[in-house]
């Protein structure tokens, strides 16, 4: 299958994402933020970083990039999209995922491995996980405190849209295991249709035990498996 990695000015995990899917034997291209037309991709990756310097708010400017119009169309036609860290923030600002991101409650940039509980393994992004599986994937962010109003949270729960929660090594999701103040320990969510995922942790940084964890591979392996099963339409 073929991945497209979006590159905004200030993206800094684009190379890592490109490497991660290449490592798994997949084709991959970079897509520059000025590109308004592209075709032939089975999955788009919005990588981490500081798009447009994170000016105003993380993701606020990137969402109006020329490339985003096509990304929205791609999402509407069922294409698979994963936004990681800043990519997640852009998807929220663009309204492709519900909610908003606030500054970490500690006011600190947090860069470390965290434990995540897999709350829904029935998605195109988590089919290689077992339900409730605890995985270790690093976070690196300053604005990762997920927020949604009560009504939105209710809808997220009703549709099983909460995919990952921060937890202890044994899968306890109580508040004290939340690194950033995120509502109900939310680390990753998907849209109602299940083709757009946003997550703060960086799976592309957890591709090898040598790097501390290889649990991130499962995210990309899930996408590949889903694509082989015909999930996520190609935009052609």
């Amino acid at each position: 299958m073929k991945f497209g990695v979006l590159v905004f000015p200030g993206s800094n995990c684009d190379t890592d994402c490109h490497w991660a899917v290449s490592e798994l034997g997949q084709e991959v291209d970079y897509i520059w933020h000025h590109q308004t037309d592209f075709n032939g991709y089975d999955c788009l990756i919005l990588p981490g970083g500081f798009s447009y310097g994170d000016f105003l708010r993380s993701g606020a400017i990137a969402r109006f990039s020329p490339v985003m119009k096509k990304v929205k169309q791609y999402a509407q036609t069922g294409g698979l999209i994963i936004g990681i860290c800043n990519g997640f923030q852009i998807l929220l600002e663009a309204g492709l995922l519900p909610g908003a991101m606030k500054r970490n409650d500690s006011l600190k940039f947090i860069c470390r491995h965290v434990n995540l509980k897999t709350e829904n393994n029935q998605t195109s992004f988590t089919n290689k996980f077992t339900h409730g599986q605890v995985v270790s994937i690093p976070i690196a962010h300053n604005e990762g405190s997920y927020f949604a109003d009560e009504a939105t949270l209710k809808v997220l729960k009703e549709n099983n849209q909460i995919i990952f929660r921060y937890c202890s090594e044994t899968g306890n999701t109580s508040e004290k295991y939340c690194p950033n103040g995120a509502l109900e320990n939310i680390a990753g969510i998907c849209n109602k249709e299940g083709n757009v995922l946003g997550m703060m942790p960086h799976p592309e940084r957890a591709m090898s035990d040598m790097l501390g964890s290889s649990d991130g591979r499962m995210v990309f392996e899930s996408i590949i498996a889903a694509s082989l099963q015909g999930r996520g339409k190609r935009d052609e």
Partner: peptide, 8 residues
């Protein structure tokens, strides 16, 4: 649209 995020 841009200057504020009406969600928060």
């Amino acid at each position: 649209k841009l200057l504020a995020n009406p969600i928060i």
